[in-house]
Design a protein around this nucleic acid. Sequence first.
DNA 1: ATCCGGTTTAACCAAATGGTTAATATTGCG
DNA 2: CGCAATATTAACCATTTGGTTAAACCGGAT
Lengths: 210, 210
Amino acid sequence: MVNIAPSKKQMVAEPSTEQRIIDAARKVFSTKGMAGARMQEVADEAGINKALLHYYFRSKQLLFEGVFKQSAQRQFSCIWDSLKQCDSLFPAIEAFVAAYLDRMIEEPLLPLFIANELNRDPKGLADFVDRGKESRARFLRMVEEARKRGEIIDIDPRELLVNIMALCAHPFIAQPMLKHIHGITDDAFLRMIQKRRKTVPEFIIRSIRA
Amino acid sequence: MVNIAPSKKQMVAEPSTEQRIIDAARKVFSTKGMAGARMQEVADEAGINKALLHYYFRSKQLLFEGVFKQSAQRQFSCIWDSLKQCDSLFPAIEAFVAAYLDRMIEEPLLPLFIANELNRDPKGLADFVDRGKESRARFLRMVEEARKRGEIIDIDPRELLVNIMALCAHPFIAQPMLKHIHGITDDAFLRMIQKRRKTVPEFIIRSIRA
DNA sequence: ATCCGGTTTAACCAAATGGTTAATATTGCG
DNA sequence: CGCAATATTAACCATTTGGTTAAACCGGAT
C-alpha cells in the first residue's frame, strides 16, 4: 500500500500513487461534489486506471471519506491551533482570522465542500467538531471575560464566533458571484482576500470594543 | 363553456400538476443538489409518474433551471427591492438585513443551493446579478456619500457589502455545523436568526460609524 | 354517443457508472 | 535468477438513471 523507498523515484520524488489518487480525488470532489464526481474522472486526473482506485480505496464512499476527513481535519486543526498561544482577545481574533484566511487560500473550495457534506450527512461530523472543542470553549471564555472586564460590549460569545467565521468563509463560498459582480480576476480576488487579513479583524474589533 | 363551480376543486384549490412538480423539484434539488437529485424522487415527491416530468419539463437540466431561476430571481429581487425606499445608509442596512434574513427563513437551503450552482456554472448567473445592478450601485453610492459626509469610517463600499451578505447568509450555509456545535434544535436556530435581525445591523453599524 | 385535445401511465431503452475479475507487469528478495 | 508479493491494467458485469414510446384516460365540444 505505502511506497516506502522507490528506487527510480528518488530524484524527482514523485508522489506515491496513493497520494496522487488523494490529490486527484480532492480536486474532483471539491469541484463536482460527492454525487457529481465520477470515479473515471478521478482516475484520469490521477493518470491511472479506474480499477486501481478500488484497489487502494474500496469504494467511492470510502475514497470520499478519506479525502474529506483529511481536508476537514487539517482545516479545523489549522484554525483552532492558531489561537493556542494567544491569551488576550483581540490578538486571538487577529490570529484566528489570519489562520482561517490562509487556510482558505490554500484550499478555496473547502468551505463549500464542507458545507455540502455536513448538509448531506449531519451525523458524520462529530469527530471534527470535537477536535476543536477545547479551543472553542477557551475562546468563548476569553470573550466572556473580556466582556466582564468591560473591554468589549455586551455580546453573545457564540454569536461573535459565528460572525467571525462568516466574515472569513463567505467570500470563498460566494467567490464566483463576487468575481462576476465586481468584474475581477482570480488575482484581484486574492489581493482582496489579503486585504481582509487586516480589515476583517479591524471590522470585528471596532464593532465589539467598549 | 367554462365550469364555474367545479365540484371537487373549489374548496381545496389543489395546486396544478406543474406547480406540484416545481415544489417537489425544489425540495429535492435543494437537499440533494443537481447531481444528487433523482428524477424518480422528484416524481414520487410530486405523487406522479416519472414520464410526466418529461412531459412538463423536457429534461432534468430544464427542470433544474426552471426551479433554480425562479428561486434565485425571487431571492435577488426580495433583497434588493428592500432598500428601494431607503435613502439614508443605516436604515438601508437594517432593511437589507431584515429582508435577507426573512427570505432565508422562507427557503433556508437556498444560499447553499445558489452557491453550488454558481460554482458549477459561473456563466449562467449574469441575468440574476444584473437584476439587482441598479440597487446595488445605489447602495454603494450611499456608502460612499456617507463616508464623504464623515458619518462612517473609511471603508471600501464593496467590502462592506460583502461583509453584510456574509453575516446574513453564512449561518444558513453552516446551519448543520452550528446546530451541532451549539447543540440546538431547529426551533432554537430560528430564534437565534430572529435575534440576528437586530444584532447584525447593530454589529455592522457599530463597526463603521465614525 | 363520439371524437378530440391535453394529460397520465406502464413498459422499455440506451448510456453511464460503480464495482469486479482475471490476467499481466513490476518490484523486492532469498 | 526465480519466486512471491504487490501494483496495474483491460475487459466485464449489474444496476441505476435520464429519457422515450405507445397506449390509456378524461373532460368537454359537436
